[in-house]
Design a protein around this nucleic acid. Structure first.
Lengths: 225, 225
DNA sequence: TTTTTGTTTATAAATATTTTATAATTGTAT
DNA sequence: ATACAATTATAAAATATTTATAAACAAAAA
């Protein structure tokens, strides 16, 4: 669950933003003043900040400039004036964006999502979206499979099957189980389609030396890693 | 052309990495010691750093901690021990990833690619209004698209669709997802409009040699970059 | 109103999936 | 070892699905 801090002095706008974001699964907090906003931003953990530039006391620029000395969080600036945009650019670093008022709440939500996703890629130390074994690499974001650096084309079902096996390496799955998992519990059809698909995936990913998918006789298939 | 700095004391490993990366179009530099690595990282411009954690003198953690005070560059840590992973997490910020030895050179290349692409997107979003791929250039400030220097006219929806895909290159999006993103979460309508718009954008931006938007059968569309 | 843009629909084309048939392999019993 | 039954591999055919394309229709803008 992602948390968003809204720094906005106009209560009705702040609540509109909050409502839309909450409908879309974000947790929100509102700060009505720049100083309290900065304080919250520093002491709590937010994934993104939406800040109005025009604020009483400490304005949006000051808040973010100050915040940036300590933390790196994506920020969406809200401004009524186009002239502020250049100033936002000038801030440099950070995954920043801006929107001019009036804006569509849906667009705001879309941007929040996009930024959190992108920044998430950066901050989260994760094994990103890659699965690999030997010279085989699967990029689930791109929906792309390469063998020895060369892209190979898999159909949707072939891809699903390979990803499932590769995500659960060194475990043997029966054809029935594979059918249920990939085709869906309620799917009707013969398990022999699994055999055929396994065969096609093998044709495409096997190299001279590497045989990833092993047949366990009378039992099923296993992806070795 | 992207530049990669390899900080690794084992020459044979470093050269293996370099060879694989150079085959894939990256320019590499090798530093055998933490101190020289840090120096290079600070004084030259690299798009990504691959660093071994165990290094003589100044170890990988120290190098990156020091570097981070000045620069924000994606880093891939190499470690032989799983116990290092928590420590990497602790570093917090930065586009970090890690791989445990022994690793597949192909996987390394894939990760390097993924990180450079993604970090590029992030910095591009905030720093510049230009997106370009091949002879296609999108100036989001001017709201103008050119192919081979010649401006082409896109309608509003066509433009939104292209920009979204181009801002998120090398990722596959389903028609439903695209519809949600471009038309709005609550929009009603058929996803076939997406198909038609993709088609129209293609007609306008495709050249003889370049096909930017790829169809991933049964899955969706992907903007290749 | 006229023009442009966006959406829906219908059909053709491309591609994927499933089924089927047959061959090859493996395991087991003789 | 040999024969047999069971299981899987392989190839091809049949069927189904998905996407491309064009054109009609609707909505919005000029």
């Amino acid at each position: 669950m992602s948390r968003v801090l809204i720094i906005e002095d106009d209560t009705s706008i702040a609540e509109l933003e909050r409502d839309y974001l909450e409908i879309n699964g974000f947790e929100c907090e509102i700060a009505a003043r720049g100083t309290t906003g900065l304080e919250k931003a520093l002491n709590e953990n937010f994934d993104l900040i939406i800040i109005d530039i025009m604020l009483p006391g400490m304005d949006g620029f000051e808040v973010i400039t100050e915040l940036r000395k300590k933390k790196q969080i994506p920020v969406i600036f809200l401004s009524a004036r186009n002239s502020d945009i250049d100033k936002i650019r000038g801030l440099g670093l950070g995954a920043d964006d801006y929107m001019t008022k009036p804006f569509s709440p849906n667009e705001l939500v879309a941007r929040v999502k996009a930024h959190i996703e992108r920044f998430g890629i950066l901050t989260r130390v994760s094994k990103s979206s890659l699965i690999s074994a030997g010279s085989l690499v699967i990029d689930t974001d791109a929906h792309k499979v390469t063998v020895g650096g060369k892209e190979i084309q898999l159909t949707a079902k072939e891809y699903d099957l390979l990803v499932f096996l590769a995500e659960n390496p060194n475990r043997t799955f029966s054809k029935e189980k594979l059918f249920d998992r990939i085709w869906g519990m309620d799917a009707i059809g013969d398990v022999s389609t699994v055999t055929v698909h396994i065969q096609r995936v093998r044709e495409k990913i096997n190299t001279e030396t590497e045989k990833y998918i092993e047949t366990i006789w009378g039992v099923g298939y296993r992806f070795n890693m």
